[in-house]
Design a protein around this nucleic acid. Structure first.
Length: 425
RNA sequence: GUGAGCAUAGCUCAACUGGUUAGAGCACUGGACUGUGGCUCCAGUGGCUGGGGGUUCAAGUCCCCUUGCUCACCCCA
């Protein structure tokens, strides 16, 4: 029994799982490069207001899920529950709007929410997020969704569903809100307890309720689509056209409401059947007022976040973790060990990965270890070889082997490392 | 915050209605095989049965408490 454990809802990530994580991160970073997104490293902690102001006082995240505490200077600080608020703070604080528009950023890292853990929901969880500033155009929405589409295709994650919605803007949402309130007020007695509270706080959320009876009631509820102003309506239509013309399949779902207050117009969610109750792998939307609320110039923006452990869970179901091929030096005797170590150091200088034992072992021991470590080649050096100034190489999966001179080892290893790298990519 | 289920070796799981020293597979280490891995066989390491209390001649097994995990609600990535 170990003396210490991780905190509730907080997990270690180590091999082989971490290989899947690395693959996800690599794929994302390559893609962001192609789409012109730059990495932004935001702090894990902010002054509490950054989150309360943006996410919304009445939301569950702010109301009961934040890791908030007072630091030694008597300031209220909070471990970030999401990334967008920090990126916007950074954007305004550093006047990133002065850069050529649109400004596009991505981030990767842990988020913290004090919740009861369950499948796909941890207290510390990782997100990959992207934000695109200063483009009000539906093209920006399409690009964001295009990146996600491309990303999941590259990772070969099957059976995902993209659902989109528009929740209107400052101009038209109030009308819809009051229409909703009017509609549900008439049927208040049939609503569940939670929804009665929602009716007062945020009637939009009633659309999200999973209680059977509420689902029935909302069948005849007014549709957001009928209340969108001209601007929002044409934006949404344009996005639908763009997605269709780019072959990105989606479904309209008027109940995609999102739990954060800052969203406007486009909201979306990508879900999987294979995840359990917490079935969203990625989600996001447009937030056209947030930058201004943070003291910046009026700046439309849109972004998304991908849940890393949820995605990694899907990848484990459908994709085996990749092996890591490398070279294994098997020296026999002290002199050989010295030679092998200096050869290995030489290779490391050339950025070539190789494994060399640091103590003496029998050849059988070396072979077993090389096999367990999944090595591609073993390079053996013993007394006979030292005399002839050679080494024996063996390709483990085929069993073929041969002898080469010590001088040629560097070239041999370089050649095969290149081949392996080519095979892997 | 609410509800349900589960806690036995590093992992996956055994142990008949309570009954002697809690077992097996995988993994790990070593040997059979002295310079050639995977297969096979043999041996070894590894446990306060999550913790505490109770019932009993006797508790891994029954009861209570506690902690942890899991799933679901809520909510969300």
């Amino acid at each position: 029994m170990s003396k210490y454990n991780t905190l509730k809802g907080i997990h270690d990530i180590f091999p082989p799982d971490v290989f899947v994580w690395n693959k996800i991160e690599r794929t994302a970073k390559d893609l962001f490069y192609i789409f012109g997104y730059d990495e932004i490293k935001i702090p894990v902690m902010e002054s509490t207001e950054v989150f309360t102001r943006s996410i919304g006082q009445s939301t569950d995240i702010v109301g009961k899920e934040m890791y908030t505490f007072t630091d030694k200077g008597d300031r209220s600080v909070t471990l970030r529950p999401e990334g967008t608020a920090s990126v916007v703070r950074c954007y305004v604080e550093n006047a990133l709007n002065r850069r050529p528009a649109p400004q596009k950023f991505y981030y990767v890292g842990p988020m913290f929410r004090y919740e009861r853990p369950q499948k796909g929901r941890m207290r510390q969880f990782y997100q990959i997020g992207a934000e695109c500033f200063a483009s009000a155009s539906a093209e920006a929405d399409a690009e964001i969704l295009g990146i996600l589409n491309e990303f999941f295709n590259k990772l070969k994650v099957p059976e995902l569903r993209l659902e989109i919605n528009s929740i209107g803007c400052k101009a038209c949402r109030p009308d819809y809100n009051s229409a909703l309130t009017r509609f549900f007020s008439q049927k208040e007695e049939f609503l569940c307890g939670d929804c009665r509270a929602r009716l007062k706080k945020n009637p939009l959320r009633i659309l999200d309720c999973k209680v059977e009876s509420c689902g029935q009631l909302r069948k005849d509820a007014p549709l957001i689509t009928d209340f969108l102003c001209e601007n929002c309506k044409s934006h949404h239509e344009r996005l639908r056209e763009l997605l269709t013309s780019r072959g990105i399949s989606f479904r309209d779902n008027p109940s995609i409401v999102r739990g954060l207050d800052y969203y406007t117009k486009t909201t979306f969610e990508i879900t999987s059947e294979h995840l359990g109750a917490q079935n969203a792998v990625a989600a996001g939307g447009r937030y056209d007022n947030l930058v201004e609320e943070f003291g910046g110039p009026p700046t439309p923006a849109i972004g998304f976040a991908i849940g890393m452990e949820r995605l990694a869970g899907l990848m484990k179901q459908f994709a085996p973790s990749p092996n890591t091929p490398f070279f294994y030096f098997a020296p026999l005797g002290e002199e050989a060990l010295n030679i092998a170590i200096s050869l290995a150091i030489n290779l490391m200088d050339k950025n070539i990965s190789s494994i060399c034992t640091q103590w003496q072992m029998s050849l059988k021991g070396h072979m077993k270890r090389a096999d367990k470590l999944n090595a591609e080649y073993v390079i053996m050096i013993g007394a006979d070889e030292i005399q002839k100034n050679t080494a024996v190489w063996k390709h483990l999966s085929t069993g073929t082997q041969g002898e080469i001179s010590i001088e040629d080892i560097g070239a041999f290893v370089t050649l095969h490392e290149k081949r392996l790298k080519a095979e892997r990519s």
